[in-house]
């Protein structure tokens, strides 16, 4: 057996350490942007499990993100939960939804899978609007500062928020780095590369795909719940098609099937949109152009291209 390569661990540890240092170095605006990018990268990393590693393109991950978000938000808002159990409810909601949707949607393949996930997510979005009495629909609701104190730490405070986001980001990053190097992760890649062969080798492909879907939904839900908790807002916008497409865009841009790709993609896209929104309201134009250009010229994304051309060891 080959000796464990130290470089991926150095890369992940270095990334987390750099992010922690950046908080003290960066001007306040950028230090305020980073928690958002980190939480959204958690969502994208969840998406990457399914899309990047298992090769299943879902167009409905917003339902898992918003399940986490509403699981936390609604229990705090209407049932007076404290953040910790509410966060757990968010995780359970997203996991259950992923298990149910996965069990149904995985009966289809290819384009049908994309459309089925899209339709389920759309039903979820419409349901959020339909139960507007509780969710306040598109307008959403704010979670009061008093309800955002986790174990005595006020998460509406800049510094606390930054490090809470960083902790979640680090946990997710290391979990995924571990999972994709495990036998389970390798089996997922085998399915992506050649499903028929993986099945022939004796893998229970259906079950593995369902497990990938559940893990992916769980992580996406963690992103959603954290978003609601850290930024104090839950709204139906986060359940819309656009929020299903964004993680796809981030992962494609950063590099599908790479551990740090989702973060790189989310960070890059955030600044690209931030930059372009100074010139125009139509900032989604950038997202559209990026999607088209990526499909045409850089199928592997930023980290993927780096791995292909320069550093073959990139995880």
């Amino acid at each position: 057996m080959k000796r464990e390569d130290w470089r991926p661990w150095a890369l992940h540890g270095g990334l987390v350490a750099t992010l922690a240092l950046l908080y003290f170095v960066l001007p306040p605006y950028h230090a305020g942007v980073l928690p958002r990018v980190m939480v959204l990268s958690v969502y994208a990393m969840g998406y990457n499990i399914l899309f990047g590693y298992t090769g299943l393109l879902s167009l409905g991950h917003a339902m898992f993100f918003s399940a986490g978000m509403y699981g936390l938000g609604l229990t705090i808002q209407h049932l007076d939960f404290t953040p910790a159990p509410a966060f757990l409810v968010g995780l359970i909601a997203a996991t259950l939804l992923a298990a149910i949707v996965g069990a149904l949607a995985l009966r289809t393949v290819g384009v049908a899978f994309m459309i089925v996930t899209l339709m389920f997510a759309q039903s979820g979005f419409l349901a959020a609007l339909y139960f507007g009495e509780y969710t306040r629909g598109d307008e959403g609701f704010a979670i009061q500062q008093a309800d955002r104190v986790l174990w005595g730490v006020d998460l509406s405070n800049e510094t606390n928020r930054f490090f809470a986001a960083l902790i979640l980001f680090a946990i997710t990053l290391f979990t995924i780095a571990f999972v994709v190097r495990s036998a389970f992760g390798r089996a997922l890649v085998a399915i992506r590369e050649n499903e028929a062969r993986a099945e022939m080798l004796g893998y229970n492909v259906t079950r593995l795909k369902l497990q990938a879907m559940i893990l992916s939904g769980l992580i996406a839900g963690a992103g959603g719940a954290a978003y609601a908790l850290l930024f104090g807002y839950a709204g139906a916008t986060f359940a819309s098609v656009q929020y299903s497409i964004l993680p796809l865009l981030w992962v494609l841009l950063g590099g599908a099937g790479t551990t740090i790709g989702p973060f790189v993609g989310a960070l890059f896209m955030f600044y690209l949109i931030d930059f372009s929104s100074e010139f125009t309201d139509a900032y989604l134009l950038v997202a559209g152009l990026a999607l088209v250009l990526l499909t045409l010229f850089a199928r592997a994304g930023i980290v993927g291209e780096l791995r292909r051309r320069v550093w073959g060891w990139l995880p």
């Binding site: 167009l59 497409i245 796809l248 900032y283 134009l285 559209g288 152009l289 499909t295």
Partner: peptide, 21 residues
């Protein structure tokens, strides 16, 4: 099939946002 869907999602945003502008 998958690239086409991603590319046409891109087109969707390009057309929609150009119209907005």
């Amino acid at each position: 099939p998958e690239s086409t869907i991603v590319a046409t999602i891109g087109l969707l945003y390009i057309i929609q946002q150009t119209t907005l502008m």
